[in-house]
Design a protein around this nucleic acid. Structure first.
Length: 450
RNA sequence: UCCUGAGUAGCUCAGUUGGUUAGAGCAUCUGACUGUUAAUCAGAGGGUCGUAGGUUCAAGUCCUACCUCAGGAGCCA
């Protein structure tokens, strides 16, 4: 048996007889006519079964099929403008049952998130997760194409590592033979730097693990991150790279997944419109400028007497931006904002400081409208002596970073890169309420099943 | 780790100031209907009200503890 005809190609076969194989998504019947909505992974197709067009046995078979039963359906493709998904339908001549399903847990009515997550392996068949995963696929391809087309080498970093990259977050640990503890990678960046010194331009793209007890709609404990790293790149170049990158990836989604975006926004067109506003150049601002805007913003908010969330904390100069600050700042614009020159004190040890503003790091974040951080990047410290000092300040042991320090001992160059959280981008593009819907099987504080 | 809220049918929820036999929609089963589109209509089955204890003549409802989950903060992508 060979799968030959797919629903997504059906409009090219109007007037022809085809056989579709798939799952029964939904069914409506009206006495002498039945509408079987078939799902084959590429889309949905309305299959019309007329009582006088098939024999009685086949008609009875059609009416006995329950949701998610699998069938092979043969029929003639006909136009059905406005009456069926994709504006074509199948006029059925033959139905073959492949397997029967009973009591499928996900009904066409609404369900709670917890219930759906408990059935995530089945939920993925429903239209919203389906559309989301197709957008995710396009984003992944676009990411790889973007870097490949610019001469970047795909450079895989190890997942099991001997040390904490930034020494800040909590890591998952596991025993590693006789070598002591190993940790699941929380970033491939340090390895990416080694790659950049060997190949000039590289990108690391792989799973990342954080053992933080995060409990927000923007955090996963396992997620995918893409981290380009480029030798001889400065902050300006890093921002340009991030901007080109985001612009091109979103452009691909607009080109290839318009139908999926329409499923996700119920045909309102809001997701498409929002993506179309992501135009170069992005708004750019120095941390000091962003801080001034936030000061004014919160002053006005507080003066207005508007009620603020109980966990709200007023931003003060020198702080990193909190969730409320990022949303507030980006809500003033309708395209991404790049904030650069953050206070060095709130940033990682490997970030280079600006010689003209020694208290500021050559770091930048790309913040998305009414969402927050999707990209974080920086110029890396390239001086051995300064790096040794930073390790000491951050109470990090020099011994496990010796290989990293070698990159400064042997041919150190200015270099920079950034990290983009794949699921955060998927979440923003798809307009998802929660990041757990942006990955097939999310791993969160309370979920490791299925 | 901190703050807030919620657990009632397979699912989503309603349930009055404590008062007789616990309610609806969907799903399932039976029947009706030749163009439906979360199809509709008629009928049927389906419950240890998160767990344990307490107050009371009487607890889904009030009290205490625990469990589970959700939402927010921090951490960050």
């Amino acid at each position: 048996m060979m799968q030959k005809d797919y629903i997504e190609d059906l409009s090219k076969h109007v007037g022809q007889e085809v056989t579709l194989r798939g799952w029964l998504y939904n069914k409506r019947s009206s006495g002498k006519i039945q509408f079987l909505i078939l799902r084959d992974g590429t889309g949905l197709c309305q299959c019309v079964v007329m009582k006088n067009a098939v024999d009685a046995e086949m008609y009875a078979l059609a009416s006995s099929l329950a949701q998610e039963s699998t069938v092979a359906i043969t029929g003639k493709v006909q136009e059905a403008k406005g009456k069926a998904p994709g504006d074509v339908e199948l006029f059925v001549s033959k139905i073959e049952a492949i397997s029967t399903a009973t009591d499928y847990p996900i009904t066409p009515k609404e369900h709670g998130v917890e219930y759906l997550m408990e059935h995530r392996h089945l939920w993925l068949r429903s239209s919203r997760p389906w559309a989301t995963m197709r957008v995710r696929d396009t984003i992944i391809h676009a990411i790889r194409d973007f870097f490949h087309n610019r001469g970047f080498l795909c450079f895989d970093a190890p997942i099991l590592t001997p040390n904490a990259a930034e020494g800040t977050s909590t890591l998952f640990e596991t025993e590693y033979f006789d070598e002591g503890m190993a940790y699941l990678s929380q970033s491939g960046q340090l390895y990416g730097e080694a790659g950049a010194m060997a190949f000039g331009k590289v990108y690391v793209f792989g799973p990342t693990f954080r053992a933080e007890r995060s409990k927000t709609k923007r955090h996963l404990n396992e997620f995918w991150m893409v981290e380009p790293e480029v030798a001889f790149l400065d902050l300006e170049g890093d921002m340009e790279l991030a901007e080109d990158f985001v612009h091109e990836v979103i452009g691909r989604v607009l080109k290839e997944r318009e139908a999926e975006l329409a499923i996700l926004d119920d045909g309102t067109g809001t997701l498409k419109a929002r993506c179309e506003k992501v135009l170069k150049p992005f708004m750019r601002m120095h941390y000091d400028e962003a801080a001034k805007i936030l000061d004014k913003y919160w002053d006005e908010k507080l003066a207005s007497g508007e009620e603020l969330p109980p966990t709200f904390k007023r931003f003060e100069y020198g702080d990193d931006f909190g969730a409320y600050d990022e949303v507030a700042l980006t809500s003033l614009y309708d395209q991404p904002v790049i904030v650069h020159h953050y206070p060095a004190s709130v940033k990682a040890f490997y970030m280079k400081r600006d010689p003209n503003e020694p208290d500021k790091a050559l770091a930048m974040d790309v913040l998305f409208p009414e969402f927050g951080e999707i990209i974080g990047g920086s110029v890396r410290e390239d001086s051995l002596d300064v790096l040794l000092k930073r390790l000491e300040e951050h109470n990090l042991p020099q011994s496990i970073f010796e290989w990293y320090l070698d990159l400064r001992r042997y041919g150190s160059v200015p270099h920079a890169g950034f990290g983009l959280g794949l699921e955060r981008l998927v979440m923003w593009v798809c307009g998802l309420e929660h990041i757990r819907e942006a990955i097939p099987f999310p791993r969160t504080l309370t979920r490791i099943w299925p």
